[in-house]
């Protein structure tokens, strides 16, 4: 099996995807992911020069849009109905440490 990903890289992916993992889990995940990525190799061996990608199946659709007309939405109560925590009509979250990207 090829080592596509090291444990340290897997730890990095876990951080990026915000999934907490123990060291044991990282070790097992590294094995699993390497095995799966191994099985994906045929895609890299394919002769694909000059082949256009198809990002959307059934390619005939384009320019699908709606008119700029208001539609019924939620009340504040409905919007917050599934909120784990809320305060003053808003979703409540604990402190944001560091920062989350492009802002």
């Amino acid at each position: 099996m090829t080592q596509h990903l090291t444990e340290s890289e897997v730890r990095g992916i876990a951080e990026y995807t915000r999934i907490g993992m123990t060291e044991d889990e990282v070790a097992q995940m590294t094995v699993d992911l390497n095995s799966i990525i191994d099985s994906l190799e045929p895609i890299r061996e394919y002769q694909l020069d000059g082949v256009e990608p198809t990002f959307h199946p059934i390619g005939s659709l384009s320019n699908v849009m709606r008119e700029d007309v208001e539609a019924a939405g939620f009340t504040q109560e409905e919007a917050l109905a599934n909120a784990p925590k809320q305060q003053n009509g808003s979703f409540l979250i604990p402190a944001i440490l560091g920062d989350g990207g492009d802002r």
Partner: peptide, 8 residues
């Protein structure tokens, strides 16, 4: 390449 394969 997976999206190219989709074309094929």
């Amino acid at each position: 390449p997976a999206q190219q394969v989709r074309t094929l």
